[in-house]
């Protein structure tokens, strides 16, 4: 059984995937900076960890959904 990995099959798909992953890289960068700031400067570490975990779970779900939507696009 092959895993459901996104494979671009045309130039349009490649460009779309490139734009998508660049945007995702920006998203991940900003998320990590926000979580780092929260964990470093937040007074309550427990609250910071809970919020960070909650955010990571929600983000991971949304990311999976976005990748699924990207995979469904056929040129």
């Amino acid at each position: 059984m092959t895993p459901n990995v996104f494979q671009p099959t045309s130039l349009g798909m490649t460009l779309l995937a490139l734009v998508f992953y660049v945007v995702m890289a920006g998203f991940v960068l900003y998320s990590l900076i926000a979580i780092y700031a929260l964990l470093k400067f937040g007074r309550s570490k427990i609250l910071a960890i809970i919020v960070s975990l909650l955010y990571l779970i929600i983000s991971a779900s949304l990311y999976a959904s976005a990748v699924g939507n990207l995979s469904n696009i056929k040129f």
Partner: peptide, 28 residues
Amino acid sequence: IQYVNLAKSVYLMFLMLGLLIMWVMYYL
């Protein structure tokens, strides 16, 4: 519809990021 769904997913992700940043700025 596939493009619309993709755009909505990405928009929702940044919406959540905006909420996190907003709260972090308020909290810190």
